[in-house]
Amino acid sequence: METKKAQLKGFHHVAVICSDYAKSKAFYTEILGFAVIDENYREERDSYKCDIALADGSQLELFSFPGAPARPSRPEAQGLRHLAFKVDQIEQVISHLAHHGVACEPIRIDPYTHRRFTFFQDPDGLPLELYEQ
């Protein structure tokens, strides 16, 4: 018997709980260039929720939750390993990030795709990747 495949069409968003909401919002919007779609303060939770997007429709949800516990986030910890962003000119983006005080690891070459990539971190230490197209 043939089974039907799920009709998944792609990712809608990735959600991030921030330790410092204002700092993370500035990082993702002012440095990485995401645009704010919607932002709401949820009084009953004493929490902000901000929907932000890149030009291709990729979205992040930023949350603030008072007292949220820290989570191990090194690339080899179980769970989400990293979030990768597509770029055309990796050196340009690295230079832009460096101008804003964001350090990137040395550029590596993917041994299978032969594409160049590097890692950096958001204000909470979440691993982010630049992947050259």
Rank of each mutant, 00 (worst) to 15 (best):
D46Y: 01
E129D: 13
T3R: 07
R115S: 10
H114L: 04
G10A: 11
E129F: 05
Y21L: 04
V87Q: 07
K4Q: 11
M1P: 13
S95Q: 15
Q133D: 14
H99W: 04
R115P: 03
P72W: 00
I107M: 05
S24L: 03
Y28H: 06
Q89E: 14
K5I: 03
D38L: 07
I52L: 09
L130V: 10
Q92N: 11
G125C: 03
S47L: 04
H13I: 03
Q92C: 05
Q121N: 12
P127I: 09
H96N: 14
T29M: 09
K23V: 10
R116H: 15
G101H: 05
R71P: 00
K86S: 14
R42W: 14
G125A: 02
P106C: 08
E105D: 15
I37G: 13
Q121H: 13
E2L: 07
P69C: 01
D46C: 03
E30S: 15
E91K: 10
D56K: 02
F65E: 01
H100S: 13
L62K: 01
Q78V: 08
H99M: 07
S64F: 00
I52V: 15
P123I: 02
H96P: 00
V93K: 01
D56P: 00
H12L: 11
Y28S: 06
L97G: 15
L62N: 00
E61P: 09
P75Q: 08
Y48Q: 12
F63L: 01
T29I: 09
F85D: 00
M1C: 06
A68N: 13
V36F: 03
T113H: 04
I107S: 12
I17Y: 08
I37C: 02
E2M: 07
A68Y: 12
K49Y: 04
P66F: 02
N40C: 09
K23N: 08
V16S: 04
C104Y: 12
Y131K: 08
Y41D: 11
A55G: 04
E132K: 12
A6R: 06
P111W: 04
I37P: 03
V102T: 14
Y131L: 12
F85C: 05
E129N: 11
C104F: 08
F119A: 03
F119S: 07
A103K: 13
E105N: 13
F119H: 14
D20C: 04
P75T: 10
I52P: 00
R81T: 15
R42V: 12
G67M: 01
T113G: 03
S73H: 15
Q89T: 11
Q121C: 05
T29L: 04
V36Q: 12
A15W: 02
E44M: 02
D110F: 01
A77N: 15
